[in-house]
Design a protein around this nucleic acid. Structure first.
Lengths: 234, 234
DNA sequence: CGCCTGCTTGAATCCATTCAAGTCGGGTGG
DNA sequence: CCACCCGACTTGAATGGATTCAAGCAGGCG
């Protein structure tokens, strides 16, 4: 009577190296849910009742400061875990997760986390590896914020998104979900005005094409040079 | 013939919950070393031959960009692990560790990491908890860099250092190791000039006292209000 | 068709950096 | 022991990158 087939998750990194029987056991406790665009999957400060796997769509992870400013910490792509507060020994979510596009998500009760980690060692190990990777990403981001100017940071942010979700179109590599100037600003610690000016300048130079909630990169290599500060201003 | 007694480490967080016999076994593989001020314990990009525990002193963890700019990622205090690249699944150190003061350090061959994690589960769990905590710290730092101005970031950096290493003196809470304007600049993504101006301004207001490679906080609470942007400019 | 939300674009402002001297202090070598 | 010298620090002035302020535009959804 299981509606969830193990082929859904068998090939995803978090479940690598797990026996088929174990996958089934894990799926028995999962429930799947659909989340509409711009809806929250979980919210910052809320008690961490569940942890999640993104099957389809794209999710942005957002932290809000006490003063109400928002920062986009990362985007989640299909196959990634999210809301793994339990693995960090937390009782509440440290950030909010918002569907950037319509999403399909699996959810497990947070109470199961210790069982999973104990009974399925490779799942535990994979999760810790994820945490380790995210720590390195976060450090890289700190370095970036500390040493680079806005133009370079925005260029890098676009390159990251394109690498993660880029889809070939006649306009170039298109970021595969609606993304606003404001979103990009919140990823890079700047304002939507500055992002807008940069995008129009780049469009004139033929590096990108963009429109309402859409950005495509035409010349990834040139944008990369710009991110490195190695592209002549002309 | 062991020169290392388990009382050295028994009460430290990474070894919490471990049996005395296990502590002894762990110490059998450790070698201790003295590191003079400004000497490196390990270097970025270098193969990760060992992981370390700081017994005494203070260490700054520094990342250098390809362009040669340096960013201080964090300071390590006694009782903390460092150089745990293996726990992140890395073969090389992601940063350099420099003794900010004379240090006493324990070192284990990196090859032992998998054994330790497998044979001493609570040690493994404690380490992963550390990684989780550092991930949260790193995210907090990203938020800070993205949303706050230099003055607030410097104030926060001082408060963190004072909390971590503050020592009561007649000048106030003194940061317990030599720290230059340049160091503070590299923690906060600014220049030594700006840090210098801020410190002199704060000194005139009676918030801090500082001198050559030394900073003491006189009014932690007022500095905190300033970090929150809630202290009148006058 | 109208409106709301996202986007653009000038102009003014400002925070911090950069440039440029110069001072201070402490440790070292003569 | 003192003089010197180097590294840390201070401080003014000029510059500039990015934000803030202020309008106005446009495109898609209801």
């Amino acid at each position: 009577m299981s509606r969830l087939d193990r082929s859904l998750i068998a090939d995803l990194p978090p479940f690598e190296g797990m026996a088929p029987a174990d996958l089934d056991r894990i799926l028995q406790h999962a429930r799947s849910l659909l989340v509409a665009r711009e809806e929250a999957i979980f919210e910052q400060e809320q008690e961490a009742h569940s942890f999640f796997l993104l099957l389809d769509g794209h999710v942005r992870v957002v932290k809000t400061t006490p003063q109400g400013q928002q920062v986009i910490v990362r985007y989640i792509s299909p196959g990634e875990l999210m809301g793994i507060a339990h693995a960090l020994g937390r009782k509440t979510y440290p950030a909010s997760a918002i569907a950037a596009a319509d999403c399909v998500v699996l959810a497990w009760p947070g109470a199961l986390w210790p069982d999973f980690a104990a009974n399925f060692p490779s799942f535990g190990a994979n999760t810790y590896k994820t945490v380790g990777t995210r720590l390195q990403d976060a450090h890289a981001q700190v370095i970036e914020m500390a040493t680079e100017q806005v133009e370079q940071r925005v260029a890098r942010a676009l390159l990251r998104l394109v690498k993660q979700t880029g889809k070939k179109t006649e306009d170039g590599l298109l970021i595969d979900f609606p993304i606003s100037r404001q979103d990009i600003a919140e990823m890079t610690g700047t304002t939507l005005h500055t992002v807008s000016r940069l995008l129009t300048a780049w469009e004139e130079r033929g590096l990108v094409r963009s429109g309402r909630q859409k950005v495509a990169v035409v010349e990834p290599h040139k944008l990369f040079l710009l991110a490195e500060g190695r592209l002549p201003k002309a």
